[in-house]
């Protein structure tokens, strides 16, 4: 059975049709907190891709040795270990971003995408497809994060990656940055809009 899975669909499905954030509704917590600016959103996305891919591979490698009754704890320990490593790396090589992300790097551990993928995929598949699945889901998560952060930074601060992009003449004509956009609740509304757009095209995802 495991042999028959198409690698292509394993990798590409999570990007849109099976997106972890807007379709499976997993990993929302961190998606909201770190998306006020593009830069932390991208770093967060990359961290999740790394943790997801490697934890998928590790769990997939040891999947036949794990005693069932402590399955969840084993998964948590592996994930937590990887998150700590990512956190230490960020502290050493991207100090400013890691300061902005603060506790949310730690919260990757409880990101439901991780536990969801480990349970649903890595526990029953071989390492290579698990790796692809991890990267694919991580990318799906990152795409949503980047879209949300793009709108929030553009409309909320008039900048992208910290550089001013809203032209001055707009401000001269009375345009103002929308302060509401940088407050956390607006991230939810932006995600809701993405869901709205995606489900208008993809009718079979709609709730009855």
């Amino acid at each position: 059975m495991a042999e028959k899975i198409s690698y292509k669909s394993v990798f590409f499905n999570p990007l849109s049709k099976d997106n972890p954030v807007v379709v499976q509704i997993l990993g929302i917590c961190s998606a909201l907190a770190v998306t006020a600016k593009l830069e932390p959103a991208i770093v967060m996305g990359l961290s999740v891709i790394a943790v997801l891919a490697f934890s998928n591979v590790i769990i997939s490698l040891i999947r036949n040795t794990i005693p069932t009754n402590i399955r969840i704890i084993v998964q948590l320990v592996v994930v937590a270990g990887l998150v700590v490593i990512v956190n230490q790396l960020l502290l050493a090589y991207a100090y400013d971003v890691s300061k902005q992300l603060s506790v949310f790097i730690g919260l990757i551990i409880t990101n439901c995408i991780l536990m969801g993928r480990l349970e649903a995929f890595a526990m029953s598949n071989r390492p290579w497809p698990s790796f692809l699945d991890g990267v694919g889901n991580g990318l799906g998560y990152t795409i949503i994060l980047v879209i949300v952060a793009f709108f929030r930074e553009l409309l909320g601060s008039g900048t992208l990656f910290g550089c001013q992009v809203m032209p001055q003449w707009l401000y001269n004509h009375g345009y103002e940055n929308n302060g509401l956009m940088i407050l956390p609740p607006m991230a939810l509304i932006v995600v809701a809009c993405i869901i709205w757009v995606q489900r208008s095209y993809n009718k079979d995802l709609q709730d009855k």
Binding site: P185, I195, Q206
Partner: peptide, 23 residues
């Protein structure tokens, strides 16, 4: 509720509005 927003979509918006109220 508009069909694409049913379920999670509208819940997100309600939660956001409650969040703004709680501010």
């Amino acid at each position: 509720v508009p069909a694409p927003l049913r379920g999670v979509g509208i819940t997100f918006i309600i939660t956001a509005l409650m969040g703004i109220a709680f501010m």
